Simulated assay, not measured.
Amino acid sequence: MAGFVNIRRDVDDKFYRYRMPVLLTKIEGKGNGIKTVVPNMSDVARALSRPPTYPTKFFGSELGAQTSVDEKNDRYIVNGAHDATRLRELLDAFIDKFVLCGSCKNPETDLIITKTELIVRDCKACGERTSVDMRHRLSTYILKNPPKKKGKKNKGGHAEAPSPSAEVNGNAGAGENGEAEGEGGSDDEMTRRIKAEASDLHTESQLVVEGWSADTSPDAVKARVAAVSAGIAGLGLAGGGDDDSEEDADSPYTQLGNWVKENPGASAVEVFKKVQELSIEKKHKAVQVLAQTLFTGEIITEIPIYLPIFQKMVTSEKHQKSLLGGIERFAGLEHPELIAVIPKILMELYQADVVEEDVVTFWGTHVSKKFVDKETSKKVRKASEPFLKWLAEAEDDEE
Rank of each mutant, 00 (worst) to 15 (best):
G239A: 10
L143W: 02
G231M: 06
A226S: 07
D200N: 13
H136S: 05
G236I: 11
G170D: 05
E246H: 10
A161F: 11
W212H: 06
D250N: 10
A198S: 10
N169C: 12
N263E: 03
M190E: 14
R135E: 10
P164F: 00
V221R: 01
P162C: 03
E181T: 14
A166S: 15
G170W: 01
L207V: 04
R137K: 13
V260A: 06
D215P: 01
A227Q: 14
G178M: 02
Q206K: 01
S251T: 00
G178L: 02
N171W: 05
D242C: 12
S217M: 04
R193W: 08
W212R: 03
S251G: 05
W212K: 02
Y253L: 13
V168S: 06
A266V: 00
N263W: 10
R224Y: 03
T191C: 08
D250F: 03
D219R: 11
L143Q: 06
H158S: 05
S165Q: 15
H136R: 03
V225F: 10
A226V: 08
W259R: 01
T203C: 11
P146M: 01
A226M: 09
E181W: 12
D248G: 02
E167D: 14
G157A: 04
S213R: 06
E197D: 04
S199V: 01
G156E: 15
I142K: 03
L201I: 10
D187V: 15
K222V: 05
S245N: 14
G175E: 09
K152I: 13
G178A: 03
S139M: 08
K149M: 13
D219I: 11
E179F: 05
G156Y: 06
A249D: 12
N263H: 15
Y141N: 09
G211N: 00
S205I: 13
G241M: 00
S163N: 14
T254N: 12
H202K: 08
E189S: 12
N171M: 08
T203G: 07
D250I: 01
